[in-house]
């Protein structure tokens, strides 16, 4: 028996050794890489099967999701599917439960009821409810926060290194003694971070402390962090909140570029309808924790229930 986090750790080790074998052209790393690969394969074989499957092309299956806080039904029997590679928008009036859905998927809340099945980056279908909140990232799910949660006491580059935390395989002793393996690993992760910074156009800020940087840059750092760990599903919580029109336009281009470049699925909550209708392939509208409509942006826009939820119903008013 082995756990998924062990497998991930071994996989990173193999990657690191292979990288080093090329970089330093040293046979000892090639040998180590083969040894680690053997271990990885053994661990993979020993990984217990979850016995779950998803329909072809579906990456996330949310079924009957409920999240109750005492008597408040924040999410109440929500069911939807996210297809691989699409940009999926979750919309709804304030207090509809959108962020709660995100918090359930990322296991910040343990759902009251319902299942969350997800096809992780190695193609295995897992039950997210069985994952710990800090292990969700290993499956390939990363998120941003509505009110930017950047580590203010660290530089922009270090913020990305923190996001790459699970990419490191060295243990505490190796870290306390600063053994060569840690230094090499550090260099590899740093290189990856530099690539992400370049992709996001943040290279100029790399040594700046996050404290005091403009809001637009902080938002970009948040998104940059999600790209550090081979994301399979990126969850963006109101990425356009607080951005001006130009920045929003840039953001929509950026989200598309991320999907092309990193071949991932993007799930977002957004109030800016222009952005949602522009970039989303599928839109899901919810209200009071219940599904209103799901479909293409046009379909959802035309839906009577959605219009009622946003503009007030026509029951008796007119």
């Amino acid at each position: 028996m082995s756990s998924y986090s062990q497998v991930e750790r071994l996989r990173r080790r193999v990657e690191l050794y292979e990288e080093l074998a090329v970089l330093e052209n040293a046979e000892k790393y090639g040998k180590k890489a083969r040894g680690a690969r053997q271990k990885l394969e053994n661990a993979r074989a020993a990984l217990p099967s979850t016995g779950l499957t998803l329909p072809e092309g579906v990456v996330l299956d949310v079924r009957g999701l409920c999240m109750y806080f005492g008597g408040v039904k924040a999410v109440d029997g929500l069911t939807f599917q996210v297809k691989k590679g699409e940009i999926f928008g979750l919309i709804g009036p304030n207090g509809a439960g959108k962020t709660t859905v995100f918090n359930c998927i990322t296991q910040f809340y343990k759902p009251t009821a319902g299942t969350l099945h997800f096809e992780n980056k190695s193609g295995q279908v897992v039950d997210l409810n069985r994952e710990k909140v800090h292990d969700v990232i290993l499956q390939g799910i990363v998120r941003t926060f509505q009110n930017v949660e950047v580590i203010r006491e660290l530089s922009v580059l270090d913020n990305l290194l923190v996001a790459g935390h699970r990419q490191y395989t060295s243990n505490l002793v190796q870290q306390a003694l600063h053994l060569p393996i840690l230094r090499k690993e550090e260099r590899a992760v740093r290189e990856r971070a530099m690539k992400v910074l370049d992709f996001m156009g943040l290279t100029a800020y790399k040594d700046w402390y996050a404290f005091g940087l403009p809001y637009g840059v902080l938002k970009k750092i948040e998104i940059a962090r999600t790209l550090m760990c081979e994301p399979q599903l990126i969850i963006l919580d109101e990425p356009a909140a607080g951005l001006n029109d130009t920045e929003t336009a840039e953001l929509s281009r950026l989200i598309r570029r991320i999907r092309e470049e990193y071949r991932c699925t993007i799930l977002l909550v957004e109030h800016d309808m222009g952005l949602v209708m522009d970039i989303c392939d599928t839109v899901c509208a919810i209200s009071f924790g219940k599904l209103l409509a799901i479909g293409t942006p046009g379909q959802v826009q035309a839906d009577k229930d959605v219009q009622a939820a946003y503009l007030g119903g026509d029951d008796g008013e007119v």
């Binding site: 990322t106 910040f108 909140v133 800090h134 292990d135 969700v136 990232i137 290993l138 990363v142 998120r143 926060f145 949660e149 950047v150 580590i151 203010r152 006491e153 660290l154 270090d158 290194l161 923190v162 996001a163 935390h165 699970r166 490191y168 060295s170 505490l172 870290q175 306390a176 600063h178 840690l182 550090e186 962090r225 760990c229």
Partner: peptide
Amino acid sequence: SPTGRAMLAMKNSTSAAQAMGI
């Protein structure tokens, strides 16, 4: 090392730290 950064992340924002696998 990653440990020091993880601790600083935890000090600044527990939710961000957890989301990043800490």
